[in-house]
Computed example of a mutant assay.
Amino acid sequence: MASTQQLKSRIRSVKSTKQITKAMQMVAASKMRRAQDATKGSAPYERAANELLTYLASQGVTDQHKWFVKRPVKNRLLIVIASDKGLAGAYNSNILRLYLAQLKADDASGVKNLTIAVGRKASQFVTRLKDTEVIGTYEDLPDHPEGAQFHAILNTAKDAFESGRVDAVDVLYTEFISSINQTAAVTRLFPAGFIETEVSDAVREAIYEPSIERVLDDAAYRLIGSRLFQALLDARASEHSMRMLAMKNATDNATDLVDDLTLEMNKARQSAITQELAEISGGAEAMK
């Protein structure tokens, strides 16, 4: 049995760790709430874009558009979104496992692939794989990636599809369903698609300037960008949620460990007291 002094030292160490994990849990919870609100912000915009594209598709404008044309998939670009930091439970392992499954499926189908890695964990992982061509890595993106890095990712994917270098572009990310439910998912950016919806009279009767083709270009680009943006927001919300749960579990485990160590220390102290009393009683009996 460990000495009382050793147990006291371990208890202090575990309590110090518990304070850190508790603080990280509270920070992650605060960031998750903000990220969760942000994931809902793009929904009205996407509905409006789907309505506009539904109307334009009914006019036959999307049939031969460069972003909507479907080709046999011989080359595919995968955009893998992971985190920059660890301590987020199974967040990174889930998305990287999905990435490996996609690579194996492509190999089995004879499809070549390129990769864009978003997040330090994804970058570190893909660089260790053999025969994987990485055309871009992006790290330390903010919670709202609206700047140059976001447009660099989007434009790289767009240029690769337009030039015929790839026939499809997919995003691998963690979909945020709720604070306790997140799922690794795949969504397609190119060729572009949309969800058919009811078209209002305002959209039907609108006059499109300078031309319907120009409006289609802008609407499609923004819709594709909103999907990539939504994937990044979902991934960040999922990361904060899983980190919050991981730190909560760590805090709970630290509490249980402190209780166990305290009980062990009390037993050790009681044993020492009992031993001392026995020695005193033995000495008193010997003096009689």
Rank of each mutant, 00 (worst) to 15 (best):
Val215Gln: 07
Lys8Gln: 14
Ser3Lys: 03
Ala148Met: 01
Phe176Tyr: 15
Ile224Ser: 11
His240Thr: 02
Thr183Asp: 10
Gln59Cys: 12
Ala202Leu: 11
Val134Gly: 00
Gly60Phe: 03
Leu172Ser: 04
Asp201Ile: 12
Lys248Pro: 04
Ala90Val: 08
Ala286Leu: 12
Met26Thr: 13
Glu279Asp: 11
Ile95Leu: 08
Val258Asp: 04
Ala108Lys: 13
Leu129Asn: 11
Glu279Asn: 00
Asp140Phe: 09
Glu46Cys: 06
Asp159Val: 13
Gln275Arg: 15
Ala168Val: 00
Ala278His: 11
Leu232Ile: 10
Ser42Val: 09
Glu213Arg: 14
Tyr55Asn: 05
Lys112Thr: 13
Val169Gln: 07
Glu162His: 10
Leu87His: 08
Ser9Trp: 00
Tyr208Thr: 07
Glu175Pro: 01
Ile135Leu: 05
Gln149Cys: 01
Val118Ser: 02
Leu103Gly: 04
Val80Gln: 09
Asp201Phe: 14
Ile207Gln: 13
Val118Glu: 04
Asn181Gly: 05
Leu223His: 15
Gln64Gly: 09
Ser163Glu: 12
Ser178Asp: 07
Ser241Glu: 05
Ser241Lys: 10
Met24His: 08
Ala206Gln: 09
Leu100Trp: 07
Thr197Lys: 13
Ser271Ala: 14
Ala250Ser: 14
Ser13His: 08
Ile180Leu: 03
Ser42Thr: 10
Gly193Ile: 06
Asp140His: 09
Phe190Arg: 01
Lys31Asn: 15
Met287Gln: 12
Gln6Glu: 08
Ile273Ser: 09
Gln5Pro: 00
Ile177Ala: 10
Ile116His: 05
Lys74Tyr: 05
Ser179Ile: 01
Thr21Ile: 11
Leu228Thr: 10
Asp143Leu: 14
Gln124Glu: 13
Leu77Lys: 11
Gly283Val: 07
Gly41Pro: 01
Phe229Ile: 07
Ile212Lys: 15
Asp131Lys: 15
Phe68Asn: 05
Gly60Ile: 02
Leu114Ser: 09
Gly110His: 10
Pro145Ala: 15
Gly225Trp: 05
Gln36Val: 05
Lys130Leu: 12
Val61Asp: 04
Asn249Thr: 14
Thr115Glu: 03
Ala105Thr: 08
Glu46Leu: 08
Ala192Thr: 11
Thr39Ala: 07
Lys85Ile: 15
Leu129Ser: 00
Thr251Met: 09
Met24Lys: 14
Phe68Thr: 00
His144Pro: 01
Gln230Val: 07
Ser58Gly: 15
Ser178Thr: 11
Ile195Lys: 14
Leu7Asp: 02
Val73His: 00
Asp143Lys: 05
Leu53Tyr: 06
Ala168Asn: 04
Ala28Asn: 02
Leu189Ser: 05
Lys15Thr: 03
Gly60Met: 02
Phe190Tyr: 15
Ala48Ser: 11
Ile177Asn: 06
Leu129Asp: 02
Gln149Thr: 06
Leu96Arg: 06
Leu129Gln: 12
Ala105Tyr: 02
Gln59Thr: 12
Val27His: 10
Thr255Lys: 11
Ile135Cys: 02
Ala157His: 11
Arg34Glu: 13
His151Phe: 15
Ala231Asn: 01
Ile135Ser: 04
Ala160Asp: 04
Asp170Met: 07
Ser238Gln: 03
Ser281Cys: 08
Thr251Ala: 14
Thr137Tyr: 05
Lys8Val: 03
Val14Ser: 06
Asp84Cys: 08
Ser179Arg: 01
Val118Ile: 14
Asp140Glu: 13
Val186Gly: 04
Glu198Lys: 15
